[in-house]
Design a protein around this nucleic acid. Structure first.
Length: 587
DNA sequence: GCCGTTTTCGGCCCGACTGTTTTCAGTCG
């Protein structure tokens, strides 16, 4: 599956180079479409190639199939090498500058030899751009501004940062009398792991009144734009929030349009066009220009012969086909979650004591919680010594008495040591009801050793959950080198659940791998990894990621009743866990 | 470069905005 991404990336790179050559845009799109479709495959592209079925992939015809085959067989692609000779690959960076698209980038490097953003900035400041065809003083000015801004680039926001702010704005505006509907749109509504802009959509017949209220909210630091359709503010935290105000009649088509993704919308408009119809933010229109749908999203999807598609799936990764064939997944919902299996207490690096966490979990409506404090070798997080584990075990037994029928599982987040062994001896591991095994050290092992390390841990009979399987931290730390495919297969085989860690900077597994995991038959655990009561809220981000990965409740272990979870925990170590059965019998 | 119950050639997503134009190209979302 790693090769799928490799091939997709190759095609995307070619598309960018073709842009710089100012090639036929449809030819360019053929490459990006093919890349997109390859990413959406649930099958290994090497396997598909071996069976000679490459041109069965939508968007892949004879020419692309040959290129993909060449790349898979030889590790390189002559066409791409040649293209790189013709076009300076560094110039791809220019496309990131707002105001520069394929045509201007082409002009820049052909006539001035500019390939980097610093070069661009310098040329703009020396007024070398304004006389180029398609440029002018205004464009030059804008490019100078944007290039300078890009130098100190503003990052994309984490979902966990953007969503609470958007919800605050929505809550503040919701009761305004001029407002008929309000909803976050864009990547936020799709719950992408990072968000570019915070876009909020409003339906109103009095846009001026809404704009007035919006630009005077208490959280406003600065008003960036007023105007009746698209006011924009900077919040006190320095985040930009754009409001889009549309007529109530257009609500459905506008919400659909502004939710995206771009690729999903393009595909949808393609469907409309096949029938001679037209789809835009103002509605779905027939050949005669009569409006067929637009008041609600459902109307639009149904008119196109589709089931309504949950926003999290709208990435053009097969959801449109599934909607047509009425086989969209019934995505897991936050309300179906019955417990949290990864919570830290103040015994290690959490902030709150076990009792308060239990009470918070009960008030969230959970049936169970698993404490998962760190293991002994993780000094920075005050990992628990075997002696502390024994004391914590006693405490948890007491708490179980006090809070029954709510159940506290004694767990641990046990380090997977570099050789794949676990960070406690067997007699300590036996004390736990549930063990999450995670990598917290030696992140830079070579791929094969890292994979072997994690595989060994999965095979250990004490391990129940594989914690944050790639170790990535958004946006700074990339995943460590690991081959997830065999890891997920092994997890499926041994009944080890794979975590979707809900910390906003982890979301690990991510959406794509979560989907792959359930395809391989693995079960998942959506966990908060909370280090405080407040962070129990991270569960929603774990669930959101699962939903983006087409995950249903049946795939999520902590959506199951306590008794089912206990049965699952017995699968490998019946003796160790038999006492649960005995206690249950006594209750 | 892909694709086909109107097509193997001629299409390929839509609308708004901006600035550079004197009728429209380029960019964006």
């Amino acid at each position: 599956m790693r090769r799928n991404e490799e091939v997709a990336l190759l095609l995307d790179n070619i598309a960018e180079l073709l842009m710089l050559k100012n090639e036929n845009p449809y030819r360019i799109r053929a490459y990006t479409t093919a890349a997109q479709n390859i990413r959406a495959l649930s099958e290994d592209i090497e396997e598909i190639a071996r069976q000679g079925r490459l041109d069965d992939i939508p968007g892949v015809g004879k020419a692309l199939a040959a290129k993909i085959r060449e790349y898979l067989e030889t590790g390189r692609l002559r066409y791409y090498e040649q293209l790189k000779q013709e076009v300076p690959i560094a110039a791809v960076d220019l496309l990131e500058v707002p105001g520069i698209g394929p045509a201007r980038a082409h002009t820049l490097y052909v006539s001035l030899g500019i390939t980097t953003i610093p070069e661009l900035l310098e040329a703009a400041q020396q007024h070398k751009l304004r006389d180029l065809p398609g440029f002018g003083p205004k464009v030059e000015e804008r490019i100078a501004r944007e290039a300078a801004r890009l130098a100190q680039r503003t990052r994309r926001l984490l979902l966990g940062v953007a969503l609470p702010i958007a919800e605050e704005v929505v809550a503040l505006l919701r009761s305004h009398p001029a407002l008929e509907a309000i909803e976050p749109a864009g990547s936020l509504r799709r719950m992408k792991e990072t968000i570019g802009d915070i876009d909020i959509l409003v339906a109103s017949r009095q846009p001026e009144a809404v704009t007035e209220a919006f630009t005077h909210l208490p959280i406003v630091r600065e008003v960036l734009a007023t105007g009746a359709t698209r006011p924009s503010i900077l919040t006190r935290d320095g985040l930009q929030v754009d409001l889009r105000i549309v007529a109530p009649d257009d609500w459905g088509s506008a919400l659909q349009y502004f939710t995206g993704s771009k690729d999903h919308n393009i595909a949808l408009r393609g469907l409309a066009q096949e029938r001679g119809w037209k789809l835009s933010e103002y509605g779905l229109f027939g050949r005669d220009g009569r409006r067929l749908a637009g008041r609600t999203e459902e109307e639009i999807y149904h008119a196109l012969g589709l089931d309504w598609i949950p926003p999290e799936l709208r990435e053009n990764r097969g959801e449109i086909e599934a909607a047509r064939e009425h086989r969209l997944p019934r995505l897991v919902e936050l309300t179906q979650i019955r417990g949290d299996l990864h919570v830290h207490t103040d015994w290690s690096d959490g902030h709150d004591p076990p009792e308060r966490l239990v009470e918070a979990a009960i008030s969230r409506g959970y049936q169970y919680i698993a404490f998962a404090d760190h293991s002994q070798s993780l000094g920075v997080a005050r990992g628990l010594s075997p002696e502390q584990v024994r004391r914590q075990h006693q405490l948890i037994e007491e708490l179980n008495q006090r809070y029954a029928p709510f159940r506290i599982l004694h767990g641990a987040e046990v380090n997977i040591l570099p050789d794949g062994t676990l960070d406690y001896p067997e007699e300590v591991l036996e004390l736990f009801d549930i063990v999450t095994a995670s990598v917290h050290s030696a992140f830079d092992l070579p791929r094969e050793r890292m994979t072997a390390r994690v595989l060994r841990a999965i095979q250990h009979p004490a391990v129940d959950i594989l914690g944050h399987p790639t170790g990535r931290l958004l946006p700074s730390r990339p995943p460590y080198e690991i081959d997830l495919e065999p890891v997920l297969k092994a997890a499926a085989e041994h009944g080890v659940a794979v975590e979707i860690n809900g910390q906003p900077d982890r979301l690990d597994l991510d959406d794509i791998w979560s989907r792959r995991a359930i395809d391989l038959g693995a079960i998942l655990a959506t966990n908060s990894d909370a280090h405080s009561i407040r962070q129990l809220e991270n569960m929603r981000y774990a669930v959101a990621t699962a939903r983006r990965g087409w995950v249903e409740a049946q795939h999520v272990i902590n959506s199951k009743e306590l008794t089912d979870v206990l049965t699952w925990l017995e699968r490998r170590a019946p003796a160790r866990r038999r006492r649960w059965r005995m206690e249950d019998a006594r209750r």
